[in-house]
Amino acid sequence: MLEAKLAEAGTLKKLLDAIKELVTDANFECNEEGINLQAMDNSHVALVAVHLEAAGFKRYRCDRPMPLGVNLTSLTKVLKCAKDDDITTLKAADEADVLNLVYEAKNSDRIAEYDMKLMDIDSDTLGIPDTEYDARVTMPSAEFTRVVRDLSQLGESVRIEVSKEGVRFASEGEAANGSVLMKQTDDDEDTQAITIEMNQHVSLTFSLKYLVNFSKSASLCPRVQLMMSNDVPLLVAYDFGQGYIRYYLAPKIGD
């Protein structure tokens, strides 16, 4: 059986917000180390991988590996019934077809209980090779959100170029072109810092609508990492205290 007690429903809500527009159904793979989810969007262009560590829960018990097939729209509805600071317990029996969610109010005696149907999901799991990336850019997640949102007003694609100068995001639209250069900052310790580690110059083009989707994870984590090598998928990584959310996005290539 699974019993996982989270300090705050808000963490789950934010996670769901960050994946629900990419993926409709997904298996939450539970084992003694924690909960993992890996799912591709319908068009097989983007993949999201989530990990929640067992140690990050107030209490965590999972006797044997079990997949929980979840419709994310349904889970979003059930989570809307929780206050952000409710203590939240997820429970499922072995071979169960329901997930039980209990919300305990922090400062009152309210206890709410919901049961959600689970489903069988055949998912295509991809083996992601360990990759040495040629460039790693670390920046405030809010800045990343802003730049992809701004440029998505102009065009469909963005070229991300990493050089010693900094990282440049450029988009060409029918009515307007735009480019944003973010220079490396001197103080690595500053939470607003932009750091660039680079073996070679990298230039890749991506669909902005996916990046705008990924950037919703900014609510989970103040920093984001972009990992890039020429001609391989981009990795956008948000590491928060209790785990991570990582997105992979296939590059576009010129005709």
Binding site: M40, S43, H44, V45, A46, L47, D124, T125, L126, G127, I128, P129, S157, T205, S207, V232, P233, Y248, L249, A250, P251, K252, I253, G254, D255
Partner: peptide
Amino acid sequence: KFKQNKLTDFFRQK
């Protein structure tokens, strides 16, 4: 102008 690659072109299916 651009062709969109798929992830399955890069990562192997398990």
